[in-house]
Every structure is written in structure tokens, then in C-alpha cells.
Amino acid sequence: MAECPVCGAEFKLVDGAEKGEIITCNDCGSELEVTGKDSVQEAPQEEEDWGE
């Protein structure tokens, strides 16, 4: 189980979740980044040179 670092909610990552992928916590809506099979961290903040 992964744990949301913002609200503490526990959830299972979907199969095929990619390291670095951005997901949203179902409980609190925070943007999270997948860091491993069962771990997430808060997604990085947008910076001025972000874009396409």
C-alpha cells in the first residue's frame, strides 16, 4: 500500500504505474508522484521554465 504524504490516505497503485508518473490522491486531491512500487511523494511544483 502507498500512503499519501499529505492526508495519510492509504491506497494501492494501479498495475503499470510508471515511476515519475503524476497521480491524484482520491481522498484529498493532492498531486502525487509515483516513486516506486508502493510509494508516492508530493508532485514537484511547477517552475517558470516548465512547458512543452
Binding site: 510508471e18 515511476k19 515519475g20 508518473e21 503524476i22 508522484e33 509515483v34 508532485a43 514537484p44
Partner: peptide, 13 residues
């Protein structure tokens, strides 16, 4: 090369 993985990177991978 990537940092966060957006929908686009996932589709490409």
C-alpha cells in the same frame, strides 16, 4: 529523458 511522467511520456513508453 524525462522528469515527471505525463500522459504523453506514458503513451510514448
Amino acid at each position: 529523458i524525462h522528469s515527471i511522467i505525463r500522459k504523453e511520456e506514458k503513451l510514448l513508453l
